[in-house]
């Protein structure tokens, strides 16, 4: 089995996610891009697990999913709260914590 296709797909997904995080202003979209990056990483883990024939990578993928789920809960709660107080989901508007 050649892992190349899987890895290229993982890299592409990761890049799309990273570019989305950097370029998009909407907090929800940024959030989804983060999810995209996490899942790109998961894909790479699973690919290597399959390639090397052990379960470590798969286990890590499960962990990532759990962490991602928790992150979504906390992250969405924050975003909703910010939206309530500022009437905006733009990440550039929430720039008070600075020098």
């Amino acid at each position: 089995m050649s892992p190349n296709n899987y890895l290229v797909l993982s890299a592409l997904l990761f890049s799309i996610g990273a570019i989305g995080v950097v370029l998009r202003r909407n907090a929800i979209v940024v959030f989804m891009c983060v999810e995209l990056m996490l899942n790109a990483a998961n894909l790479a883990f699973v690919t290597f697990a399959r390639l090397l024939g052990n379960l470590d990578g798969q286990v890590v993928a499960f962990f990532t999913m759990v962490v991602a789920a928790c992150e979504v809960v906390v992250g969405l709660a924050i975003i909703v709260t910010i939206f309530r107080s500022r009437r905006s989901a733009s990440v550039d508007d929430a720039n008070l914590l600075k020098y």
Binding site: V21, L23, R25, V30, V91, D92, A94, N95, K98, Y99
Partner: peptide, 12 residues
């Protein structure tokens, strides 16, 4: 400390 702009996307 000027680096701490408060813009999340810059940090990212």
């Amino acid at each position: 400390r000027r680096v701490q702009t408060g813009f999340v996307r810059t940090y990212a």
